[in-house]
Amino acid sequence: MSPIYPRDGLNAHPLNASPEYKSTLKRAPSQPLILLPHTLSETSGPVFGHVAVQAGDSDLTRQHEGEPLGERIIVFGRVLDEDGRPVPHTLIEIWQANAAGRYVHVRDQHPAPLDPNFTGAGRVVTDAEGRYRFTTVKPGAYPWRNHHNAWRPAHIHFSLFGPSFLSRVITQMYFPGDPLFPFDPIFQTVTDEKARNRLISRFDLATTEPEWALGYQFDIVLRGRNATPIEEPHDD
């Protein structure tokens, strides 16, 4: 049983030619893309087991001597395919700004403080049911130079592989109710509202731990469907 990869869901993705996001202007291809048949090169993909992950990689609050500043959060969810089936044992990599909106990256020039107790990088492998869980702090919003007074809504970057080259995706998770959504050209490059809303995590009281951390659920749907036709129940 191997997955198939229909193309109908792909219009959820943003167009690279999205001129409101200025960095696209000289980087988006101008020629039409060539439609590629799915060969073994595309339907296979790298496999990363638990060897890729070290103990503690999923808890970004315990990577240094002290605890980072900020609002402690639990980010969790499931990785599913387009049929809603779990994607087990797949690698997730995340990175984010600290609570002040500053990245550890050497080229981040935002004059907000670095936190000596926070790097902001994590990895986890989903379990047999496609579940994952990170502990971290809520990242701050940060300014960028796209236009006057441009600010990115708080977000966590996610990188996923899934079962094949076709399922590979890098995305960003946002937080519910962010007032910056209407003004963020990157978030708005996803033009379909329902698809855009799938990038917003959901506050979850059941996962929130008393006296400890808020819970946010972010389920991720990767390309792929079951190749075996599924029997529909007949009611007639």
Partner: peptide, 25 residues
């Protein structure tokens, strides 16, 4: 019998941005 869930929409892609190196490379 397999129960088929409603079709799920793909999680849209977003840019990797300029600050990935300390996590990915």
């Amino acid at each position: 019998m397999t129960e088929r869930k409603d079709d799920l929409g793909l999680t849209p892609s977003q840019t990797i941005g300029p600050f990935f190196a300390y996590a990915l490379t």
